[in-house]
Nucleic acid binder design. Structure first.
Lengths: 259, 259
DNA sequence: TAGTTGAACTCCTCTAGACGACTAGCTACC
DNA sequence: GGTAGCTAGTCGTCTAGAGGAGTTCAACTA
């Protein structure tokens, strides 16, 4: 049986924080294992002799920290840490494309996960000012917009939107839902644009409500955002991609020369 | 005067979320500017005709999202976005060290901020199993541990801890609080270890209470974590550095060859 | 003038209770 | 045998109130 301890009314730390502290320790020390259910609100109300809202405040704190998830009608459970996927900086290596694997597929399989993609939407739009600038296009030039959601072992882990100039995508399956083996980078190279390098801008923030929904995460889970630009050997930007990843599921690895 | 709108009791979105939505929109559309004060709880209770806790729930949601910060006794304010600092992947370029600038100093100045460092602590410890493994040392070999906090324009933006093998640091100012011009990387190179490359592992998570305190951020602000290893030209790991950055203050730029 | 007090305002924490909605398991009926 | 409905247990949301504590500023006092 879990030792819930007691709260101390004389100390200046408020009861709801003390309760959160006790539960947090149990989780961090493994006495409450991932997936395990926390004591119900009723039990804790009884045990600590506090009001319902006080217990809920404590649980709210843990939810904000991403330590637990509540399930309406069932209980509150310790978050089972999703598998962490390491993304090495060679994930865009040509050999993967030559093997018919897209970057995501190659990485997920290497990490032993079952990859999946859904919610694919492909449209042809006029480039926004920002996208045009990043791609070095004139404003309002047309681009293929590809958005999709990636899954690992059936769980959503990332949503991404790519923008490719129509002039490059024309006559290729890039504008189709199914781009064929190797993904869009393989198609871009076949179209005569040999890829030379990528730049990635990494940052992190809290998710918007839409992103929370698409990634099936709570409001306490941060996201990693990647803004990637692909350049061909002539230095032309041939694709930009905005990616939002579930932060807890990823570690990004980069190799930086000292120069 | 700010248009607070009204809530719709017939729709299935709960009132506290509707209130949060209204406020969020005002913030996102700039009608509530950074630093500006939100209507007080009392005003909103009156305006929407709801109970205290309902308004507080709405505000809590915005706090969790990192959009606002509450100040006891003063009010709730739209978070003023701290200056974002872009960290280019050339931030460890040798020329910076040759100019006597550490990586942080070089970057901060380039971005037009006043850099600062405080809370410097230097100790000599037996390497933990993890650090020993990352540095390729035998367990319990001694390392110099340097931890410090970085400030930009007086605001804390990052805490970092470096581990350098004592065998490399011996006889250099690396074990001193003041390492001299160019920082520890300059000293490592002077000690005969020419730096060849770095690897960085980037991830993001919510901060621990300690980190919240050191970085002076609320519980709704995520942090970026960097685990860096520096290698010399012989392939030996000469330093590892664990960094925790305020996520909203940084964009990390990386250059990835397509290979 | 300089310092203190007090009021008014703010958010923080807690209590005690209400009803609603979701889940899961059991039961009774067809 | 299958299903519809009941029920206990869970979390979600809301109400109406309380005292506490930090902030500000004006009024008061020495």
């Amino acid at each position: 049986m879990l030792d819930l301890g007691t709260i101390d009314r004389t100390v200046d730390r408020p009861p709801y924080r003390q309760i959160a502290d006790i539960l947090r320790q149990h989780i961090e020390r493994g006495r409450l294992a991932p997936g395990e259910q926390l004591p119900s609100e009723a039990v804790m109300i009884e045990h600590y002799g506090v009001a319902r809202m006080t217990v809920r405040e404590a649980i709210k704190e843990l939810r904000t920290e991403g330590l637990v998830v509540a399930q309406h009608g069932k209980g509150v459970f310790v978050r089972s840490a999703p598998p962490v996927r390491r993304l090495a900086s060679d994930r865009f290596a040509r050999r993967h494309r030559q093997e018919g694997k897209s970057a995501f597929l190659a990485e997920a399989e290497a990490a032993g996960h079952v990859p999946g993609v859904d919610q694919i939407r492909v449209t042809n739009e006029a480039a926004s000012a920002e996208v045009a600038e990043r791609l070095g296009l004139k404003p309002r030039e047309r681009v293929i917009v590809r958005s999709r959601r990636y899954l690992a072992d059936g769980r959503p882990v990332e949503v991404a939107t790519s923008y490719i100039p129509e002039s490059i995508a024309k006559g290729t399956p890039i504008a189709e839902v199914n781009t064929g083996p190797g993904g869009i980078y393989a198609r871009i190279e076949e179209a005569g644009h040999e890829l030379a390098r990528f730049t990635e801008e990494v940052s992190a923030r809290m998710p918007s409500p839409d992103e929370r929904k698409a990634l099936e995460i709570g409001s306490g889970s941060p996201v990693l955002t990647l803004v990637r630009t692909a350049f061909d050997t002539t230095g032309r930007a041939v694709e930009v991609c905005d990616t939002v990843k579930v932060a807890t599921s990823f570690v990004l690895e980069y190799d930086v020369p000292a120069r």
